[in-house]
């Protein structure tokens, strides 16, 4: 599937140009007051969900290891960043770095023992770990237990959100489209054969898990500093399932699919805000019908518009 990559300067400039245009346009709309609060919130949710979906897709889609604990890593990131910014009054960047490191560490600690398990056992173990993270947070007085932390400064501005999305997608696409990425994909395709071809499958499973967790942590930090308040309950397994729905809908192993699904689901959620039950029933129908009629997800493992879109993310220096 992967093409050999060469550095193409003209393309690179065009792609950076497109990103700059998108960024400036939205920044202008926000600062000129043309984008009301409702759209701004949705925009932030879209950014956060893209990061979550793309990072979970690395684990579930490319590595083929079904993880149901992504919200747990998001929680770790959210709390780590808030401790840095709100408790210690350090700059946001420190909070973000702390979030990434803490979540990556959590991913490592959880990944090493659980990734020996296969398929549905792994799914349940990660679900369990995700819930344990939540319960532990509920029992730590330092972070106010079940009540959560309030009064977090709103530091997740558009530049942070946009920058984070771009970096997440770049890192994951660049990783996947490399020899390391092929090793990761070989684990999904046939673990035994991969191992016998010299791929240390455990190492690559853990690598994917840690990178995925790290970006979930980033998403958590952005979330905490956009919505002012974090509670352990926010990061329960229903949140993990939300992200899973995006990945499954978009296609396991398609980054563009995950991005589109994240946008679609966020918009759908916003549209059905007053009817939460209907939203969930719709999720249910989406999951079941997609699995029955198109188990590889809407996009399968293909990427949208390889020629235009794909290169935008693929060949960047």
């Amino acid at each position: 599937m992967q093409k050999t990559q060469h550095f193409k300067p003209v393309q690179f400039i065009i792609e950076v140009g497109i990103l700059v245009v998108i960024f400036t346009l939205v920044q202008y709309l926000i600062s000129a007051g043309l984008l009301n609060q409702y759209y701004q919130i949705n925009l932030a949710s879209i950014c956060i969900n893209i990061i979550l979906a793309v990072s979970l897709n690395l684990i579930n889609g490319f590595t083929g290891q079904l993880s149901l604990g992504h919200a747990g890593f998001m929680a770790v990131g959210a709390y780590a960043s808030v401790i840095m910014t709100t408790y210690m009054e350090l700059p946001f960047i420190v909070g973000i770095i702390a979030a990434c490191l803490a979540a990556a560490l959590a991913g490592f600690i959880i990944g090493v023992p659980t990734l020996r398990l296969r398929g549905d056992y792994l799914a349940i173990a990660t679900l369990g770990f995700g819930e344990i993270i939540r319960v532990v947070l509920q029992n730590i007085d330092y972070v106010n237990g079940p009540a959560g932390i309030m009064g977090i400064s709103k530091l997740s501005t558009w530049p942070w959100l946009f920058g984070s999305v771009v970096i997440t997608i770049l890192v994951i696409v660049n990783l996947v489209n490399s020899s390391y990425g092929r090793a990761i994909i070989s684990v999904r395709e046939d673990e035994v054969a991969a191992e016998l071809m010299g791929v240390n499958t455990t190492k690559y499973k853990v690598l994917a898990f840690v990178v995925g967790a790290m970006f979930a942590g980033l998403a958590g930090a952005l979330y905490a500093h956009y919505f002012y308040i974090i509670k352990p309950e926010t990061f329960n397994f229903m949140k993990s399932f939300d992200i899973l729905v995006m990945v499954v809908l978009g296609g396991l192993g398609s980054t563009t699919g995950a991005i589109i699904a994240a946008i679609f689901i966020t918009v759908l959620t916003a549209a059905l805000q007053s009817f939460p039950a209907i939203r969930m029933i719709l999720y249910a129908v989406i999951l079941v019908t997609v699995m029955i009629y198109r188990p590889q997800g809407l996009m399968g493992n293909r990427e949208l518009g390889r020629r235009t879109f794909g290169r935008l993310w693929g060949d960047k220096k």
Binding site: S179, Y180, R182, A183, S186, A194, M197, G198, V199
Partner: peptide
């Protein structure tokens, strides 16, 4: 290419 990975 996957088989070549070990000597990347």
């Amino acid at each position: 290419r996957i088989a070549l990975h070990k000597d990347v």
